Computed example of a mutant assay.
Amino acid sequence: MNNNSSYTIEEVSQLLKISKLTVYDLIKKEELVAFRVGRQMRVDQHDLERYKIKNRTGIVQEEPFILGKQNESKNRNTKQVVISGQDIVLDMLSKYIEKHTSLTPLRLYNGSLNSLVSMYYEECDVVSVHLYDGETGEYNSPYVKRLLVSQPFIQINLVCRNAGIYVKKGNPLNIKNWNDLTQTQVTIVNREKGSGARVLLDEQLKMLGVSPRSLIGYENELTSHFAIASAVASGQADAGVGIENVAKMVNVDFIPMIKEQYDLVILKTKENDELVKIIKEAVNTTEFRSQLEQLHGYDLSLTGKVIYESS
């Protein structure tokens, strides 16, 4: 544990002996105040102690006015929404929401399936999904309908994007398709369980009748597209699955294999009516769409379309 005047979410969970998701839930419910430093959220020692006192005695002690506390007071009066997913477009959406509304976005960087599970337990307000279903050839809807079977939701397309295989510059092993990953001279690096890229690879291998465990490196897991591409670029692996935009940031070649739907899922509750309206408006504004158009490997032809809405 550090000796600074603020704590990371993981440190707070250790101090309170609760899960990180419970900490995020406390923040979402405005029971615990947090602030962001880049992509990381932190909690002031003062606010953590204040939370502990409140829950021990049932009251919150009045405090003298301190310069700089105005923003803290303002944050307590704004609704916080938790947005889960890893793509940069979610960071752009969060900034838009923060700029144009009174809502305060909080970011979680979980994979698609793990994000959906968090939503099932009402620990997220918005989740992004890119989950390929080999049986139907569809993205997302089969998974969301099965998991949120008892909860009404709306599924809106944010972008479509190119997904495929990262290989070393020049593609020295001449990898062209999913089946080439099974060659004995090819070592892959994999995404973590619950990520959309992991599901895509597993579904493609299942359609080929190939056991995932037969791939060399299948058990070697990293937790982001950037980490996968970097591992290939550095020679730790020959190939990995990811999205095209990241290949432009790292010194690797990219073999496009599929155009995937990257959708947003929001639970349909009375409390989320405003959030759904805001997101629908955001993805159709010239300001937001022009930002998306600057990204490589993204398709906006479905952006803003309601893919599915349960009654």
Rank of each mutant, 00 (worst) to 15 (best):
K168G: 12
L90R: 00
D87S: 03
V33A: 03
V23K: 01
L103N: 01
L48D: 03
Y143K: 09
I53V: 11
I9D: 02
S73A: 08
Y7L: 14
K277W: 00
Y139S: 09
I165Y: 13
V82M: 06
P256I: 06
M207C: 09
T184A: 10
V210Y: 09
A247G: 12
N251F: 14
N245F: 10
L302F: 10
S84K: 05
V37F: 01
D263S: 15
K29C: 01
V82Y: 02
S230N: 13
Q40I: 10
P142Q: 15
E72H: 07
G196D: 07
G111Q: 04
L26T: 04
G235A: 04
Y7V: 04
D299Y: 12
Q86K: 14
L90W: 02
S211H: 12
Q61A: 10
Q185P: 03
L48S: 01
E72M: 09
G38R: 11
K54V: 02
V33K: 04
V81H: 10
K277I: 00
G297S: 08
V23H: 01
V159H: 04
G242H: 11
K54F: 08
A282T: 11
W178A: 03
R50E: 12
E122P: 00
T78H: 12
A231N: 03
V89C: 03
E271G: 01
G170L: 05
K20F: 00
Q204Y: 15
F35G: 05
A282I: 13
N220A: 07
Y109G: 05
L108A: 04
Y96W: 09
T101G: 06
K145T: 08
V186M: 09
N220Y: 08
I266L: 13
D238H: 15
Y166K: 06
E122R: 09
I66Q: 13
